Amino acid sequence: MTPVVFIHGLWLHSSSWQPWSDLFAARGFDPVAPGWPGESASVAEARSNPSAVAGLGIDDVTSHYAKIIADLPAEPVIIGHSFGGLITQKLLGMGLGRAGVAIDPAQIKGVKPLPFAQLRSGFPVLGNPANKRRAVSLTAAQFRYGFGNAIDAAESDALFNRWTIPSPGRPLFEAAFANFTKDSPAAVDTANASRGPLLLISGQRDHTVPDVVTRAAYKLYGDSTAVTDLKQFPDRGHSLTIDPGWRAVADATLDWLARQGITR
């Protein structure tokens, strides 16, 4: 069986991948969804102990998952959402992983578009420089704008109550200033021709990672001969991995993996 490593992004607990894990296991894969370094085992515990993840940066999280991958019995498929999608790209560029799927991935170095919706989504963190050293929680209204804008308000609130946790502010600062930082941790080896195939997935109503940002990342892979594909979902927002339409995204991921010859 091919291992699958699921990597969540900011403000969602690792257990939010459970429906995906169940689906992939039923299809013959061996899924795992480890949390970020220091992340508590449950949503309730994570909410009660935000300092456990305060100050974590992109390199910390990337190294954490690289070690997990090194201990697996076989080369895994890596699937990440939001900052997990950025980390997926970093790991794949490092030569780790049989294939990668980056869903609404946070912007990597070299991506230049910075839409207003993205700025507004990041403001709860970026609006205070001290948040670089803190763990920050979203309010239900902030989650509604950044994640749940493409679903109804009641469903957004339900997802907020079920899955959200405090997350470190530092990755947002690192990504926001990546193009002005020489050795930015948000840099990805987009020219690596020997890496596994990569699928970028975009929700075209996403406020946190607007479609134009994912398309800009896709273009950065133009110099690599490795497989790089883009799949866009109209009328989907940043909650596309956890909202009622998650299955369509998961099925598209499985179909793409099958086209790469990875079926179990």
Rank of each mutant, 00 (worst) to 15 (best):
T263L: 03
T88I: 11
T181V: 11
R215F: 01
P210N: 07
W36N: 06
A70F: 06
A54Q: 07
A130I: 12
P197K: 08
T164C: 08
S224F: 13
N179A: 03
F24K: 01
I7Y: 11
N161H: 10
P166V: 10
I242N: 11
W256P: 06
P244Q: 04
P171H: 12
G222A: 15
A158R: 15
T181G: 06
G80S: 12
S16W: 00
F233E: 05
Q118K: 09
E39F: 02
H13M: 04
Y221H: 15
V77Y: 08
L198W: 08
R120M: 12
P50R: 12
S184V: 11
P185T: 08
G28P: 12
K132A: 14
S224M: 09
A193M: 01
T164R: 07
S14Y: 03
P129E: 07
V53I: 13
G100E: 10
R47H: 09
D206H: 00
P244V: 11
V61W: 02
S194G: 10
R134C: 09
F6H: 04
Q204H: 00
A248P: 01
G100N: 14
G85N: 03
D229V: 07
A70E: 04
T208D: 02
I68D: 00
A187Y: 03
D60V: 15
R247F: 15
G57N: 06
A187C: 06
G222N: 07
S82A: 12
D255I: 13
P19F: 13
L198H: 11
T62L: 09
L126P: 04
R134N: 13
K132P: 00
Y221E: 01
A178K: 09
V227S: 08
A248N: 03
R215H: 11
T225E: 10
I201E: 00
S15A: 09
P197T: 06
I68A: 03
I69S: 05
S194E: 14
A130P: 00
T228K: 15
R247C: 00
A154Q: 12
L114S: 07
L200C: 06
L92Q: 13
F29H: 04
G95R: 15
Q107Y: 10
I58K: 02
D223V: 14
V227C: 04
T263H: 08
L119D: 02
L172Y: 04
F24N: 01
R236Q: 15
P50E: 07
P115L: 07
G97L: 09
G237I: 06
P115I: 11
R170Y: 11
L23S: 05
R264G: 11
R144M: 08
V227H: 13
A250T: 06
A175D: 06
G84W: 11
R47S: 05
V212S: 13
A102P: 08
T62N: 12
D243Y: 08
L254K: 07
L72D: 03
G245F: 12
G35L: 10
D235Y: 13
Q18M: 14
G57A: 13
K182P: 00
L200K: 06
G169Y: 04
F143I: 09
S16G: 14
E39M: 15
V111Q: 06
L72P: 01
